[in-house]
């Protein structure tokens, strides 16, 4: 394995982990409500920007991060309550436009609360690169990988072991049956927005020290996260993680070895190619309606 390859792999993993977190957010909301939340990228932005502000007023990371995540989660809950809930039963297109409207609204709000400039966030633990097998990795990348791993483990515990998590899963499999079994489906929907927003915010905070953040970082990250979720198969948790990582690595590799000008296009070329052969993504549910 050449050092360059290792380098691309490490970078790809880091980027991929971020995509995975955003993709998980898409999948959780999709499972609970069948809504594709195009405002998912804005949670990433809010996480990063809020942390920047909180650090600027002198809070330590240990306080700033939970506060920023909580802020994003609150916005997520508000989005569900005031925009998605009132539009229940609307068509797919209508819901897509509502969440896109929300994303524009949030971006506009961000330019007022903050500004249109780029902001750097100081790495959590220094910026001296660490050398691994001839490649270097930033300590912040280790944070990204470590926290993502922890989040994924926590989520699988949550969905596999806790009552609430199981209720959310049950709702995604069969909403009516879940309702009959006494699960408060509306509450599940509400909470899933909060959880997704928190996940997005975590991604935004983790990546901000590496790429800087601004009011519109959420646009591309949101679209790529969407692509990652689709790649894995919308609604599948494993799919979201695999899709995110796969997308991150392929993107970095092809930017490195093929053309860096088309780096941002690669995710979309991949997703088109995959959908061409597997119309439901890698791990998506097959089969359509019965007649």
């Amino acid at each position: 394995m050449s050092a360059q390859f290792t380098q691309y792999l490490l970078t790809g993993l880091t980027v991929g982990a971020i995509y995975a977190l955003v993709a998980l957010g898409f999948s959780i909301i999709f499972n609970a409500s069948n809504v594709i939340n195009f405002a998912q990228g804005e949670f990433v932005m809010i996480g990063g920007m809020a942390t920047v502000s909180l650090i600027a007023v002198g809070l330590p990371y240990l306080l700033a991060i939970p506060l920023a995540v909580a802020a994003a989660a609150l916005v997520g809950l508000a989005l569900e309550k005031f925009a998605v809930e009132p539009a229940r039963g609307a068509s797919v297109v209508t819901l897509i436009i509502i969440t896109i409207g929300a994303s524009i609204f949030l971006r506009g709000l961000a330019t007022i609360i903050w500004d249109k400039r780029f902001h750097a966030l100081k790495p959590f633990t220094g910026d001296a690169p660490i050398t691994i097998a001839g490649a270097t990795i930033l300590p912040q990348s280790l944070w990204v990988l470590g926290v993502t791993l922890a989040v994924v483990l926590a989520l699988s515990w949550f969905f596999g072991r806790t009552l609430l998590g199981k209720a959310m899963l049950a709702t995604s499999h069969n909403r009516l049956a879940a309702q009959l079994a006494g699960i408060n489906v509306r509450m599940v929907l509400f909470l899933s927005f909060g959880l997704s927003a928190a996940l997005g915010a975590v991604a935004g905070i983790l990546i901000a020290p590496i790429t800087t953040t601004s009011y519109d970082v959420g646009v591309m990250l949101g679209l790529k996260g969407f692509a990652a979720a689709m790649l894995g198969g919308m609604g599948s948790g494993v799919g979201a993680v695999v899709g995110g990582i796969a997308l991150g690595i392929t993107e970095t590799m092809s930017a490195g070895y093929l053309s860096s000008a088309y780096k941002d296009a690669i995710a979309f070329v991949i997703i088109l190619a995959v959908l061409f052969f597997m119309p439901s993504g890698l791990f998506g549910k097959r089969g359509g309606e019965r007649v």
């Binding site: 925009a83 436009i97 509502i98 896109i100 409207g101 929300a102 994303s103 524009i104 609204f105 949030l106 971006r107 506009g108 709000l109 330019t111 007022i112």
Partner: peptide, 11 residues
């Protein structure tokens, strides 16, 4: 406020 209002009208 243009962007925010536009988003709000859409929603």
């Amino acid at each position: 406020y243009e962007m925010m209002l536009f988003g709000a009208v859409m929603m």
